[in-house]
Lab assay of single mutants.
Amino acid sequence: STGEEYIAVGDFTAQQVGDLTFKKGEILLVIEKKPDGWWIAKDAKGNEGLVPRTYLEPYS
């Protein structure tokens, strides 16, 4: 699937089932941008889950 690459600007630990845990500096592939501010993203290992958009910045 296609998506946009974003870099994590902080650590995030999953708070509920379906969230994706990530560390600062990780590159995430954003698959869907939901209007509530929680985006669906995939990490380098292929894990998929919800992430808070405030922790992400476009990666170029």
Rank of each mutant, 00 (worst) to 15 (best):
S1M: 13
S1W: 01
S1G: 03
S1P: 01
S1I: 11
T2Q: 06
T2R: 07
T2K: 13
G3A: 07
G3K: 14
G3I: 14
G3M: 15
G3S: 14
G3F: 15
G3T: 14
E4T: 11
E4K: 12
E4F: 13
E4Y: 06
E4A: 05
E4I: 12
Y6R: 02
Y6M: 08
I7G: 02
I7A: 03
I7M: 14
I7R: 08
I7E: 02
A8Q: 01
A8K: 00
V9I: 04
V9F: 02
V9W: 01
G10L: 12
G10D: 09
D11W: 02
D11R: 05
D11S: 06
F12W: 11
F12K: 14
F12V: 03
F12H: 14
F12L: 11
T13F: 04
A14T: 13
Q15E: 09
Q15K: 08
Q15R: 13
Q15W: 02
Q15G: 13
Q15P: 12
Q16F: 06
Q16A: 11
V17N: 02
V17G: 11
G18Q: 14
D19C: 15
D19S: 15
D19V: 14
D19F: 15
D19L: 13
D19K: 14
D19R: 15
L20Q: 02
T21I: 08
T21R: 12
T21M: 06
F22M: 13
F22A: 12
F22D: 00
K23V: 08
K23G: 07
K23P: 04
K24Q: 06
K24Y: 02
K24D: 11
K24G: 04
G25L: 03
G25M: 04
E26D: 09
E26T: 10
E26V: 06
I27G: 06
I27P: 06
I27A: 05
L28G: 01
L28A: 03
L29K: 05
L29H: 03
L29T: 12
L29G: 11
L29Y: 10
V30R: 01
V30M: 04
V30H: 00
V30W: 00
V30F: 01
I31E: 08
I31K: 12
I31C: 11
E32A: 09
E32Y: 07
E32H: 08
E32N: 07
E32C: 09
K33W: 02
K34I: 04
K34E: 09
K34T: 08
P35M: 08
P35C: 13
P35T: 10
P35H: 06
P35N: 15
D36H: 06
D36R: 11
D36N: 08
D36E: 06
G37D: 14
G37H: 09
G37A: 15
W38D: 15
W38Q: 15
W38K: 15
W39C: 15
W39E: 00
W39M: 15
W39H: 03
W39P: 01
I40H: 12
I40D: 10
I40M: 07
I40T: 11
I40Y: 08
A41E: 00
A41K: 00
A41D: 00
A41Q: 00
K42E: 10
K42W: 02
K42F: 05
K42G: 05
D43T: 07
D43Y: 00
A44T: 06
A44K: 08
A44M: 05
A44D: 05
K45H: 13
K45M: 05
G46I: 01
G46P: 00
G46M: 11
N47C: 07
N47M: 12
N47S: 13
G49H: 02
G49A: 03
G49P: 00
G49F: 02
L50C: 14
V51E: 00
V51F: 01
V51H: 00
V51A: 06
P52D: 15
P52C: 14
R53H: 12
T54H: 13
Y55T: 14
Y55E: 14
Y55M: 14
Y55K: 13
L56M: 12
L56G: 00
L56D: 00
L56R: 00
E57Q: 02
E57A: 13
P58D: 12
P58V: 09
Y59L: 09
Y59I: 10
Y59C: 11
Y59D: 14
Y59P: 15
S60C: 10
S60W: 08
